[in-house]
Design a protein around this nucleic acid. Structure first.
Lengths: 250, 250
DNA sequence: ACCTCCGTTATTGTATACATAACGTATTCA
DNA sequence: TGAATACGTTATGTATACAATAACGGAGGT
């Protein structure tokens, strides 16, 4: 039988999980398609036990769905599912912002957020924004959201937000990229940045309700824009993660 | 169609998961304690593979925590973690109520909710409430919350709420039981019932914001009362699930 | 006496063999 | 000819054997 070259630097379970997630997100495995363990063993290079562990984790993550008769299939999402996921994440981030504001945050903790803000400002000064700058923006934006989440100092909430961001289209990077297909992309980024600025201000002034409201508005903007982007199906291939949308009925 | 009811009617994985969860919630495994796979194999009767799958699921569920060097330990929670989890669930249920109100719900769909409401009303008419009636109340209350969640018609949100309810103290039954240790228990139940009534009214009248607000208030009430109940440590043994609280530092 | 290093042990990570249930196909009977 | 059943194939669920690694303890050196 074929020699299995063992990569001992990472656990086989993690390797299999990453490989399978890649296959799902890249569209190599289509929504609704059943995942064969045997096939997964071949493509990932791990054996059945770690592959099974990876499948269980991906199911909990929301990318897979258990089939009653056994095994797993790639989950399919409707547009409604996607917009709900984004609004859900916005609600959770709103709670995080409120916690941060109510519980109080020191100037030192706010520092990295402000640096993020300034860096994004710098990027947005270019008109139109270059591809490289946009890529930096995606990373910085994700970092901003992660830092903001941390400010809540609430492990259960942080955990839940992480889970809600597991779905690629619901992650900060995910919907920013989806919006990038729109002609008004630059203006959208500028508005988003304004939201970031306001939430920091609200947290500094300990205005919990305002901090929460602006994060929810931030998400609603994303939902509106994603809907628009989905109308322009021509640009859809920009975001491979959207391959998870079920093409048939909504 | 008479199926023989053998142990094989449920999978070994599920059996192990239930058994382990029982051990954790009953306090047989203490917070912070490492779970030995070998020991779990002996106590659950399943072999290592299903036990491992169960451990992964329980980790994703939030009851266990992965140890970097390998294996799992029982997660420990602070009081803050618990109150945050309850508020988190309330926020999610608030969103569900808002979705239900905004999206519209037919009278037929609202029927089971109203039946629940009436049944609880009936129970609360007794003063003081009997043990049996209280037990029925716990079940009915859980059912009410589950039905309300369903009304959102949002699979991602429903899923997330289920996850948030996985932690025993964050589940509807969990915090109702914790509150039962208080002398004002009956009054608390009556207030809670009033919240239930208002949220239905708001949904019927399609007042999304009001539906959301009342559910969040519902959770805040629970948080306040749980804090009070935790002060009365004498009654704490009423709720085995609270064994998960770390006794040392907060 | 304490620290360090090495060997032993126990426990987890991985692989594979075995059992069982589901699905497809072919054959047979109505 | 169609449907139903039986059989075979395939894939999943389960168990166990093997490998590797981290914890533990003892012995020796500084």
């Amino acid at each position: 039988m074929a020699e299995r070259e063992v990569d001992r630097s990472v656990s086989q379970t993690v390797k299999a999980q990453l490989a399978l997630r890649d296959q799902i997100l890249s569209g190599a495995l289509r929504p609704g398609e059943r995942i064969s363990e045997l096939q997964a063993v071949e493509t990932t290079g791990a054996s059945r036990t770690p592959v099974r562990m990876a499948l269980v984790r991906l199911e909990e993550e929301g990318l897979l769905e258990a089939i009653p008769s056994g095994g797993f299939m790639v989950k399919a999402f409707s547009e409604r599912d996607i917009s709900d996921s984004i609004e859900l994440r916005g609600t959770l981030e709103g709670l995080a912002a409120r916690f941060a504001a109510e519980r109080g945050v020191s100037a030192r903790e706010l520092e990295p957020l402000k640096e993020c803000l300034a860096a994004i400002d710098e990027l947005l000064r270019q008109v139109p924004i270059s591809i490289e700058a946009f890529s930096s923006y995606v990373a910085l934006n994700a970092r901003f959201h992660a830092l903001l989440t941390e400010l809540s100092r609430s492990p259960p909430l942080i955990r839940q937000i992480d889970r809600a961001s597991a779905l690629p289209f619901a992650s900060p990077s995910g919907f920013v990229m989806a919006q990038s297909a729109l002609p008004e992309a630059q203006q959208i980024l500028i508005i988003g940045q304004e939201h970031h600025r306001v939430v920091i201000d609200a947290i500094e002034n300990r205005e919990g309700a305002r901090a929460e409201a602006i994060m929810r508005e931030h998400a609603r903007l994303a939902v509106r824009n994603l809907r628009l982007a989905l109308r322009n199906r021509t640009h859809l291939d920009l975001l491979p993660a959207l391959a998870l949308i079920k093409t048939a009925t909504d």
